[in-house]
């Protein structure tokens, strides 16, 4: 399973929606229930699943799912 597929599973679990199909352009405005509080749950879930950690600067820089995917991919390569 590639990074995008794994991330999609996390989105489906956190936002309780089996129909979610993430795209790089997707933002919080496109996912029902993606608010500042569920975002924290999403980030913690990503960190655990991929065994990575984000710093504050990285967290502030995420504007869409594409940014998240790029950051995850960069971290798991290092």
């Amino acid at each position: 399973m590639d990074v995008k597929e794994q991330l999609n599973l996390i989105f489906r679990e956190v936002f309780d929606d089996d129909a979610i199909a993430i795209t790089p352009q997707m933002t919080a405005n496109d996912v029902e229930g993606w608010d500042s509080l569920s975002h924290i749950t999403l980030i913690v879930a990503i960190e655990i699943k991929f065994k990575i950690e984000f710093n504050r600067k990285e967290l502030r820089g995420f504007k869409n799912v594409g940014d998240l995917l790029n950051a995850i991919s960069a971290k798991i390569k290092t």
């Binding site: 229930g33 608010d35 509080l37 569920s38 924290i40 749950t41 913690v44 879930a45 960190e47």
Partner: peptide, 23 residues
């Protein structure tokens, strides 16, 4: 475990509301 933390956060968020998720 941190996995349990995520499980709890997801559960409360989806049963009550994201606003009710413990910080």
């Amino acid at each position: 475990s941190r996995e349990l933390e995520v499980k709890i956060r997801v559960h409360v968020g989806n049963r009550a509301s994201s606003l009710a998720t413990p910080q």
